[in-house]
């Protein structure tokens, strides 16, 4: 087995008096699509923010792609951040830049690619996320919700990351679009050989995309493993999460 893409050991997170994570351990192997699930306030998004280095945990060690996020070496930290891509829940596109400039932004930041190459790369990424070249000139405010997600995905993939992080990738999309987006992510993952970590509430997304599931609850990981393995666990939260959602998902 290859080295884990994300390795979390003894993570402690605290907001004031509110303890979010207490000695949380999680290891995500390379090449998997790992879904983080959990109730509201179980610290899923917090965990994701810590993994991408937006927040520093009070205690514990997080290694992404085998390296610490805050090594003290600015160049190394920056290089590490160029090796993973994040798709934010609302897309987080730069509203003052058009689609082309949004996707080109991380490429321009490398400062060694010329304009034509960047343009070509953006066009390839646009095609990858199934958008048309004419969409490149639209502003983020002119895009539909599904297109925002696609553009944000293209931007996250611009630097050819090894690891892709998705925060609620299908939230706010109707079932059709959500299914299309899920199959797009799956196709890209196969094509590009990505490891994927996603946070989701949606059981359809989960079952369609995830190869492994980690359940957050009670300030730690309640269960981790394949979907079947996790669903067999006897825990009130897991029962209600999968149990309540299953008939609804099946009834569609």
């Amino acid at each position: 087995m290859t080295a884990p893409v994300i390795d979390i050991r003894g993570l402690v997170t605290r907001f004031g008096n509110h303890l979010v994570h207490e000695g949380l351990d999680l290891s995500i192997p390379a090449g998997e699509v790992m879904a983080l699930v959990g109730g509201s306030g179980s610290g899923k998004t917090t965990l994701l923010r810590q993994v991408i280095g937006l927040m520093r945990p009070q205690r514990g060690d997080i290694r992404v792609l085998g390296q610490p996020l805050f090594s003290g070496d600015l160049q190394a930290d920056r290089a590490l951040r160029q090796r993973f891509g994040m798709l934010f829940q609302q897309g987080a596109l730069f509203s003052a830049l058009n689609v082309l400039e949004n996707i080109a932004f991380p490429l321009r930041e490398l400062r060694w690619l010329d304009r034509e190459t960047i343009h070509d790369l953006v066009m390839i990424k646009l095609a990858m996320v199934e958008l048309e070249p004419r969409h490149a000139w639209l502003m983020p405010a002119e895009l539909s919700g599904g297109m925002v997600k696609r553009v944000a995905l293209a931007r996250a993939l611009a630097l050819e990351p090894e690891l892709l992080l998705l925060d609620e990738p299908t939230a706010g999309l109707d079932p059709d679009r959500s299914a299309a987006f899920v199959s797009l992510i799956r196709r890209l993952r196969d094509q590009l050989g990505l490891s994927v970590v996603l946070v989701t509430h949606d059981l359809d997304t989960l079952s369609a995309l995830a190869t492994r599931v980690a359940v957050l609850g009670e300030r730690r990981i309640l269960a981790e493993g394949t979907l079947d393995h996790v669903m067999k666990q006897d825990h009130p939260f897991i029962r209600s999460f999968f149990g309540a959602a299953r008939p609804a998902a099946g009834g569609r």
């Binding site: 304009r115 034509e116 343009h119 070509d120 066009m123 390839i124």
Partner: peptide, 15 residues
Amino acid sequence: LDMLRAAAVLGPCRP
């Protein structure tokens, strides 16, 4: 080959 064919979406046009 798949990667190369993906580049076929590029038109001859440059910015």
